[in-house]
């Protein structure tokens, strides 16, 4: 059991909250940082920002070989999560769910889906994956 690891950023993980460097505009997600990964400002003035529940695929692969607890084929992407307001997006890894290779490309917009990422013991750890919008499956 590793409760502390998942509790530290639970608010960000479940609400897509980022932290924007006031010196350079870089957005940290999900860590609430005190230094800036881009401009190196330290201590950095970081302002909490809300990210949208959608992402734009920057690049991706479709995984065929993974341990058994991850179903394959598993598309995984680097996604940009735009801010609700003005400013730069946060850039993060996003697992895709219910999405096939044929449905995605660089630039495809995907929506955030609240899903079980894995479990800690028996306890589900829920956060976001991404998928093409459900209505596109009709």
């Amino acid at each position: 059991m590793s409760g502390p690891r998942y509790e530290r950023t639970r608010r960000q993980d479940q609400h897509l909250i980022g932290f924007e460097c006031q010196a350079c505009g870089w957005v940290s997600f999900p860590e609430e940082k005190r230094t800036c990964k881009r401009c190196g400002d330290a201590p950095a003035e970081m302002t909490e920002v809300q990210l949208q529940e959608r992402g734009e695929i920057q690049t991706f692969v479709v995984q065929q070989y993974l341990p058994d607890d991850i179903e394959t084929p598993q598309p995984v992407a680097i996604v940009d999560l735009p801010q609700a307001g003005e400013g730069e997006p946060a850039r993060a890894y996003g697992l895709l769910t219910e999405t096939d290779l044929e449905e995605i490309d660089v630039g495809t917009e995907v929506v955030a889906r609240f899903r079980e990422l894995f479990s800690d013991g028996e306890r589900p750890i829920n956060s976001f994956k991404f998928s093409v919008p459900r209505e596109e499956k009709a």
């Binding site: 769910t97 219910e98 889906r113 609240f114 899903r115 079980e116 829920n126 994956k129």
Partner: peptide, 13 residues
């Protein structure tokens, strides 16, 4: 349900 869905995630949708 998909393998990554549970009661809480479905309820949230």
């Amino acid at each position: 349900p998909a393998r990554d869905e549970n009661h809480v995630t479905m309820a949230c949708e």
